[in-house]
Write a protein that binds this DNA or RNA. Structure first.
Length: 423
DNA sequence: ATAAAAGCGAGCTTTCTATG
DNA sequence: CATAGAAAGCTCGCTTTTAT
């Protein structure tokens, strides 16, 4: 490709592109200007100002000055100044000459590192570039570690986005060690026995942001891939559409539970038990086959009702981390003293007296075996509704019937709504 | 087991040289 | 001198290998 000449307008545009975060190589691909050329323009502009400043209006002058400041900042960012190799941290001063103290500390600390120095350098480079410089952290080391100084969450800022959290944690630990070293080495006094004591006004402000552990010890007990959560949500919505408010609305479940061989979730009932006004009473009317008439003695037409139990059980499994066996064993709480009623799908309901003839217990000593359970917060005295799971695998072996199971003190209206309906 | 060290690769910038 | 082109070098976030 032959040599080209570019006008000043184009040059400014490219400089702006750089300032907006593009790399010089990126610009080369997009505009066809050599990356080295663009970098030349940038440096030239920073050094000498506007490309032709003889006829500049005051307004333009100001604009160029602002761009020049931005450009200088960007140039520093782009510059490869040996952050990964330099053990003297001269580059820190290029960013801001006030960082002298930090530079000295870093320089001194890195000398004490014998093993894995490379990683320590990387950690410091990130700490200064992404944290100290970006967030205008105080240039006074003493202020940084003093109790009253407010520090942003360094882990969140530098490491939250990392894919490999175990690596991130390791690097973050090095930064914490660095600050620890400063406090100990620079701001501690020795007691009579030669132990180093840190005065109460100092503390490492970063320690509190360091996660105790990291998910990466994801020791899965299975070597199978996990089903993405998205699918769970999809299935929930198929089984129970977001706008469904009664059993009649669960159309998919009703059709899926229709088996010609064994009836599925549909069972034959006498017409008299059907309440046509109840939206939760799902019924239908169908003609019977010859075979059914002769072998089962049915009449030509029968009424059938839909049993929502299986569907709700499935839904519970999709909403709560329970095993099928646990869901099947849940108690509806027919003999409990109180019962729970909830009229809206997403709004918590209330507890009323259970006036069924099976009801047991007294107000002072209520009977509660049902899956929905009333909890009272000990500190706020607020009442809420959670779950009581009455079976729990091995943990319950040798336990009295009454002590089996466990509580889930968590108010989850979606689940409560359908469970209360089933009752 | 866990930490350190080495290595990799993608995406950059810098340096050096050639050329109109 | 400005620009293109090529090659060398740097950085960073991992992964893999090695050491403790």
């Amino acid at each position: 490709m032959g040599r080209k000449a570019y006008d000043n307008l184009f040059k400014y545009k490219m400089i702006e592109e750089l300032c907006n975060g593009k790399s010089s190589l990126n610009i080369e691909r997009e505009y066809g200007v050599k990356n080295t050329t663009v970098m030349n323009w940038l440096r030239n502009f920073i050094k000498n100002g506007a490309f032709d400043d003889n006829a500049l209006l005051p307004k333009e002058k100001l604009k160029f000055e602002q761009l020049r400041e931005k450009a200088a900042k960007r140039e520093l960012e782009l510059r490869l100044h040996g952050t990964s190799t330099s053990e003297s941290f001269e580059w820190l001063l290029e960013y801001d000459s006030n960082l002298q103290q930090w530079k000295e500390c870093a320089e001194e600390w890195i000398k004490t590192i014998v093993r894995n120095k490379d990683a320590a350098l990387k950690a410091l480079s990130n700490f200064f570039k992404k944290y100290v410089i970006q967030y205008n952290i105080t240039s006074s080391v003493q202020e940084f570690i003093s109790k009253d100084y407010d520090t942003p969450d360094f882990y969140e800022i530098i490491y939250a986005e990392r894919g490999s959290q175990i690596n991130a944690l390791n690097e973050a630990k090095k930064i914490v060690q660095f600050i620890d070293w400063i406090t100990e080495e620079k701001f501690s006094v020795e007691d009579d026995y030669g132990n180093k004591l840190t005065p109460a006004e100092f503390k490492n402000p970063l320690t509190k942001y360091l996660p105790d552990s990291v998910k990466s010890s994801q020791r899965n007990e299975s070597d199978k891939n996990v089903l993405p959560y998205r699918y769970i949500k999809d299935i929930r919505n198929i089984l129970c559409p977001p706008n469904a408010i009664c059993f009649k609305d669960l159309k998919f479940a009703q059709s899926a539970g229709d088996s010609s061989r064994n009836g599925g979730d549909w069972f034959i009932v006498d017409k008299s038990v059907i309440d046509k006004n109840d939206p939760d009473c799902v019924y239908r009317f169908r003609k019977t086959s010859k075979y059914e008439q002769t072998s089962k003695g049915l009449s030509d037409e029968v009424y059938e009702m839909w049993f929502p139990g299986c569907t709700v059980a499935l839904l519970i499994k999709l909403l709560l981390p329970l095993r099928t066996y646990q869901v099947r064993m849940l108690d509806s709480g027919e003999i409990d003293t109180y019962k729970y009623v909830q009229s809206k799908r997403n709004v918590a309901g209330e507890w009323i007296k259970n006036n069924s003839h099976l009801s047991k217990g007294t107000e002072r000593n209520p009977f509660e075996r049902g899956v929905l359970r009333k909890f009272k917060d000990k500190t706020t005295q607020l009442e809420m509704t959670g779950f009581y799971i009455n079976t729990n695998k091995t943990a319950d072996i040798n336990k009295e019937e009454f002590n089996k199971g466990y509580d889930i003190p968590w108010q989850y209206e979606e689940v409560q709504y359908w469970l209360a309906k089933l009752r």
